[in-house]
């Protein structure tokens, strides 16, 4: 047979014409979206509950406060999401955030730099620390968990030594003014920044070379590498981006508080940073992100925090609740995974 391969010239390709469609799989889209709609419904339900129990919950001042915290929570969630995309994690988001906070405070107050320069300095530091994480992970081959666990403590320690843990309280008044600014009576401009970042990330992952490469590297690093994706570079870029976003969140906090405090960030960010993305449907295994989901997930965190505050339930309860919600989210994630697997295996 050998030397005569077979061929079929009449390609009455009924198969090709019918079975291949170029439209996006609707089912997939709705399956993804339905999880987020569910999450959104929970947030809405909580709003109904909180505003019935405490009428102050929907007062313009409280709405303004919620918007401001939400903005920060969203960006913190993003800072984790961008490394989850690569199948890694960043336990140092809080440390990087607070390092950026203190550098910005120093540049504004002690060094007397103009505001834009100080902001750029803070952001640059965040990016640089993130880059260090990424570089260490790629060069040593040690996993992100260990590296960022170590660097979280390292960065925080170094910051405390250098700043002696003294807050910068006398920043230029414009900083605090921006934080207090209200648009249409109750919307903080910080929220627009968060949304703009979300839009940029959405475009990044959906429509750009880099975003695609990040997701490919996250889903199967070996296959991505063998397909010509520069996996190491992509991981370093993602960590740099994570650091940059953590710094952004930190600086937003500076505006909100009108001061640079060494007590913000640190470990306090860890839980919310995972809650947003995981609730929103970003896979911990890497290779997929949910930008809008992360925003809704962050909204859940902010809502609960603010609601408990308005109801004057203590902070201990908040910790407990957030922990419970993370567990529930992770279980939902598992269940979703098992369910999808079952469905593809055809088990009911």
């Amino acid at each position: 047979m050998a030397d005569v391969p077979v061929n079929f010239f009449h390609r009455q390709s009924h198969m090709t014409d019918e079975t291949i469609s170029t439209e996006r799989s609707r089912r997939g889209f709705f399956a993804g979206a339905s999880a987020q709609i569910g999450l959104f419904a929970i947030v809405a339900l909580l709003w109904v509950i909180f505003s019935t129990l405490a009428p102050g919950f929907t007062s313009p001042i409280n709405l303004f406060g919620i918007g401001r915290s939400l903005a920060v929570d969203i960006v913190i969630g993003f800072s984790q999401m961008v490394v989850l995309a690569t199948g890694g994690m960043n336990l140092a988001v809080g440390s990087i955030g607070v390092c950026a906070v203190m550098l910005t405070g120093f540049l504004l107050q002690d060094a007397g730099m103009p505001i834009p320069v100080a902001l750029a300095g803070g952001l640059l530091l965040g990016g640089a620390l993130g880059w260090l994480n990424g570089f260490a992970i790629v060069k040593t081959g040690v996993n992100a968990f260990i590296i960022t666990l170590a660097s979280a403590s390292l960065f925080l320690g170094a910051m405390l030594i250098l700043s002696k843990a003294v807050p910068y309280n006398t920043l230029p008044p414009e900083v605090g003014q921006f934080g207090r600014m209200r648009i249409w009576g109750y919307v903080s401009p910080l929220l627009f920044i968060a949304i703009a970042i979300g839009a940029a990330l959405y475009v990044l992952y959906r429509h750009t070379l880099l975003g695609r490469q990040i997701l490919a590297a996250g889903a199967n690093p070996r296959a991505a590498e063998m397909s010509g994706v520069p996996v190491g570079r992509v991981i370093i870029i993602s960590h740099t981006l994570s650091g940059l976003l953590a710094a952004t969140a930190g600086i937003m906090l500076v505006a909100r508080l009108g001061a640079a405090m060494p007590s913000v960030g640190g470990e306090d960010w860890l839980l919310p940073s995972f809650l947003g993305p995981v609730l929103g449907g970003t896979l911990l295994a890497g290779g997929s992100v949910a930008v809008i989901g992360t925003m809704i997930g962050a909204a859940l965190v902010t809502t609960i925090r603010s609601g408990l505050l308005v109801l004057q339930v203590g902070n201990f309860w908040l910790q407990l609740f957030l922990g419970l919600i993370l567990l529930a989210a992770v279980m939902a994630d598992r269940y979703r995974g098992v369910f999808l697997e079952r469905r593809s295996l055809g088990r009911k």
Partner: peptide, 9 residues
């Protein structure tokens, strides 16, 4: 002739 309901499979 990749046999699939859609390239989004």
């Amino acid at each position: 002739e990749i046999r699939t309901p859609s390239v989004e499979q």
